[in-house]
Design a protein around this nucleic acid. Structure first.
Lengths: 335, 335
DNA sequence: CCCGGCTTGGAAAGCGCTTTCCTTTTGCGT
DNA sequence: ACGCAAAAGGAAAGCGCTTTCCAAGCCGGG
């Protein structure tokens, strides 16, 4: 910038003001033109780290997900990035690959980068120690002037965009019930994930309200992956062959479940057993059969998260609630 | 850090050396301990921008993709992030949402961030003007000491991890041919994308070598999306109903094509028409019917890209070639 | 016609680090 | 015991910006 200023015959201060001026101060027409011309000519590229240092704030926001290749997070990330673009923010993504410790580590890293904000997109966990450590780091981050927003519940005093996981679980169960299903099983994910707990809880409550509490052996846990869903579904239908419908707690597990039911067990979906997934990831409609599922507005969640980041810190924690919707396709049938 | 140094009773220099020392200089056991204790106690968090400024280099690498929600890029990003993690690099992702100008804009942004390197993951384009502008920006970036690597061809003097797009196109066509198909059509993507051109070209050549050149009207273009694939496939089969096999130039288009064939046209796959996709994205095997496709090692490409970034600049441009493989599933049948 | 107030340009003091160059210690050979 | 080299700590000069504070220059009102 030194060069640009000299080339334009102005001071450093003036050059800075026209190139990155935060509006508080205005530069005369003539000088402004000269500076811009000089910058153009010298192919000046500003130095973001230097700016961040001087301003004590940057234009990067962090996004911490479990796995970028997972369509659930892909959709959220897409939404977030679209919104970020409009605000001219750069997005730094970190994937924990489901290693719990990494979330903390990346949050520290983002803090070191002096990210202006971070979005915690992955599910919270029931591990109290880890949660406490994370909370401390979050507090530190916020004390430094950073903003944190969570997608999904993490704690009552955090800004969060809440997904209707409980309601969604209820929706799915009631949908199945209305189709005439009475023997419903659940293919669940790792029980330490809050998301899983909420979805399961929603399903449980709905069933209880319907007068048919979910038996313990009708729910089985698997990894939150395709393979996990497949294994769990196969196990469940083997141990409880009289089940007529399965609620699978996320779509990628459901994809595995469908494969397991068909290829490992030879059970026809939906004639022999109905299957409902969760999330409505983009490929859900393309599965075989097209997956009935609980739709969550994923992209919108990403957008909402950066929306929250932009609002001034505020006194009370902010929340935006996103609704779930049951979409029935071909993997469910009336009994 | 000032504080830490003072608290430990040492100079700033010493504190810096123990906290971020680049190894060239060693600090005595005693002082080292004291500094570390102080840092711990004061919850010191280093300031990456300041370091970047002082060192004139950072630990962030940029990754520019078309769309994070697209499983193709999701897989590449996952591979890149896994590799980045091992090197303790932070990844800044930018999604262009297929707007051509954005790629240039983001490259500038990453340059301003003083990213140590950037990976251009999206396909190059045949637009000469845009390519030239991009080349200039790349040159500038490299002149500043940054590294650039492309996934897919972009230019002969760039480090690139090359995907076997041509070979893959050939593989698909020969696979179909061996199944007895003689009337093969192609659902292509936007012809300005180099990736598309190469895949198509590979298919063309193979067909010509087989003695059955691809007729012009047997290839139709669509957007590189599910909807684009659906529309294009429907159009193609309507105009050329005697086609017995379709090569669709990427899996997400193929998902759309499958849907269109089934729901819009009522054509049975694979009995009436065989379909081969391209990429082998994770959900390909879960489509209905399970999609035969040309597998590209996507994650590996991401990893290879960051591998290239780490190697010293080198004299000649480096290349790593990744092979394609035809995987036949249920969307293809012998005629 | 002069003076107060407003506008606009510039000088300079940081922002939080790294690193060069000195200075002081320490260890060792003879 | 002495001298010298190597090791280890510290002072200070930046890195490329932003922004505060000053100094001019300009306007209109008295």
């Amino acid at each position: 910038m030194q060069q640009v200023a000299h080339h334009a015959g102005v001071s450093l201060a003036t050059a800075s003001r026209v190139l990155h001026g935060s509006g508080s101060r205005t530069v005369g027409e003539e000088l402004r033109r000269r500076v811009e011309a000089a910058a153009q000519e010298l192919r000046y590229v500003s130095n973001a780290p230097a700016q961040a240092l001087a301003r004590a704030t940057s234009s990067v926001v962090g996004l911490i997900v479990h796995d970028v290749a997972d369509p659930y997070f892909g959709a959220i990330a897409a939404g977030a990035m679209r919104a970020a673009r409009e605000q001219r923010l750069m997005v730094m993504i970190a994937a924990t690959f489901r290693e719990p410790g990494l979330e903390l580590e990346y949050l520290r890293g983002l803090r070191a980068q002096r990210a202006r904000a971070v979005i915690l997109a992955g599910s919270g966990t029931a591990d109290a120690a880890a949660t406490a450590e994370l909370a401390e780091e979050i507090a530190g981050f916020e004390a430094d002037g950073g903003r944190v927003v969570c997608i999904g519940e993490r704690g009552p005093d955090l800004d969060t965009v809440a997904m209707a996981n409980r309601a969604g679980g209820g929706l799915a169960v009631r949908g199945l019930w209305e189709l005439g299903h009475r023997r419903i099983g659940v293919v669940s994910g790792p029980s330490e994930l809050l998301t899983v707990r909420h979805r399961l809880d929603g399903a449980r409550r709905a069933l209880r309200a319907l007068g048919a509490p979910l038996p313990l052996r009708a729910v089985v846990e698997g990894d939150f992956t395709r393979a996990g869903g497949r294994a769990a579904a196969v196990r469940l239908m083997t141990e409880q062959p009289d089940l007529g419908a399965l609620l699978v707690l996320n779509d990628v597990m459901a994809a595995g479940a469908l494969a397991g039911l068909r290829d490992d067990l030879g059970l026809a979906v939906p004639t022999r057993v109905s299957v409902v997934g969760f999330d409505d990831v983009p490929f859900a409609a393309d599965l075989s059969p097209a997956l009935s599922t609980v739709r969550l507005p994923l992209e919108q969640a990403g957008e909402a998260a950066v929306g929250l980041l932009l609002e001034p810190p505020g006194d009370a924690p902010r929340r935006v609630e996103l609704a779930a919707e049951l979409v029935l396709r071909d993997s469910t049938a009336a009994v």
